[in-house]
Amino acid sequence: MNILKGKVWTFGDDVDTDAIIPARYLNTFDPGELALHCMEDADPTFAAKVSPGDIIVAGKNFGCGSSREHAPLAIKAAGVSCVIAESFARIFYRNAINIGLPILESAQAAASLQEGRQVEINLEEGKISDLSSGSTFTAVPFPPFMQGIMAKGGLINYIREKKNKK
């Protein structure tokens, strides 16, 4: 099942990890608790209004700042099915792949998709369709190596399988 569908929530450029999950909540790594504060310092009402399957659309350098994996974990646990951005900060990008939070890089989609739009995403093809307007966008495909990690459901599964094969 690689088709995702949900409503768009938009954010700007340089959304940092302190905005995604403030450090005052980092004395736990329980995904359910983190989800309650997801995006709190960017939009305090986000956690209450986001629905399962919804999609975050942001500008450049999404997830900059700290290495806290709690950031993609909070987003995933809040029910967000995918983050689309013009670009991602390096560590957030790694973390999302490693924990299996789908992310897509597309400057066009990031610029065009408006809040509230219904969007369908075909992850395998990297195709993003704006169901409200009918326009489609293509995301930058991941290198096969990273696709391998994601196909296994994250880095830990990937390693466990490699270990078992030995």
């Binding site: 290495s67 560590i91 973390n95 490693n98």
Partner: peptide, 18 residues
């Protein structure tokens, strides 16, 4: 370089990272 917790777990287990 900074990485995430899962990366650290992978390194603790294997001593390697991509």
């Amino acid at each position: 370089t900074g990485v995430g917790s899962t990366d650290l777990a992978a390194v603790m287990a294997t001593g390697e990272l991509w």
